[in-house]
């Protein structure tokens, strides 16, 4: 079941940001796969960041001695600055085929972002070519991000354990020159396995 996460507020070929109002249990989740319909294509991304900025009213409430529950609730539901969700682009779908490359065009502002779980997640993670697009981002917690994503992908499968072993082998191939990083990443996967 697809859940709407929010609308795009900022976008580029490699990353985009989505604004949403409230934090719900299922969305937005770090490491989950999301998609945005863009014209005939669908652009896929991984949520790498969920950020809540302050506003003057929050600051005021934060320093009050007694805060009423209604105020807190009101502030959370009707926030002035939206929750900002950072998404890393990892591929797109064109004509029924999923491609693990950067899309020709980024999504446009106010396009709607949906979660991608179950079948969709399994289909996207059938191949591992998108690993490189994730691992190359040294300014992001890329390892943590990929590990989280793989855990969800494993959960969505009946043979999750075998899936993780295959993914681990692909990582061993990609990171064979950086054994410390590889080891850290594999341990993150193992803890789930």
């Amino acid at each position: 079941m697809e859940i709407q996460v929010g609308r795009i507020i900022r976008s580029s070929t490699t990353r985009f940001a989505v604004g949403c109002r409230v934090l719900r249990p299922e969305v937005p989740v770090f490491g989950s796969l999301v998609k945005v319909p863009v014209l005939d294509d669908e652009v896929y991304g991984l949520i790498y960041d969920v950020c809540m900025e302050d506003d003057p009213y929050v600051r005021q409430i934060a320093v009050q001695e007694e805060v009423r529950a209604e105020h807190i609730e009101d502030q959370r539901r009707n926030r002035q600055v939206p929750i900002e969700v950072g998404v890393l682009v990892v591929g797109y779908r064109r004509g029924g085929t999923i491609v693990h490359r950067l899309p020709p065009q980024p999504p446009t502002s106010l396009d709607v972002l949906y979660t991608c779980t179950g079948e969709g997640l399994v289909e996207f993670t059938r191949r591992f070519d998108y690993f490189r697009l994730v691992l190359d981002n040294r300014d992001l917690p890329a390892d943590e991000l990929l590990a989280a994503n793989l855990r969800y992908a494993a959960e969505a499968r009946s043979d999750g354990q075998a899936f993780l072993v295959d993914a681990g082998r692909e990582l061993a191939r990609l990171l064979n020159m950086d054994l410390v990083r590889l080891d850290g990443l594999l341990r993150r996967l193992r803890d789930w396995a």
Partner: peptide, 24 residues
């Protein structure tokens, strides 16, 4: 990677040993 000989992974773990064998 030749460094693997110096710092072998923790192969007591079946997952890690499965991943390393045949790749690294």
């Amino acid at each position: 990677n030749p460094a693997l000989e110096k710092t072998p992974p923790d192969t007591s773990d079946p997952f890690l040993s499965q991943v390393y064998q045949g790749t690294a």
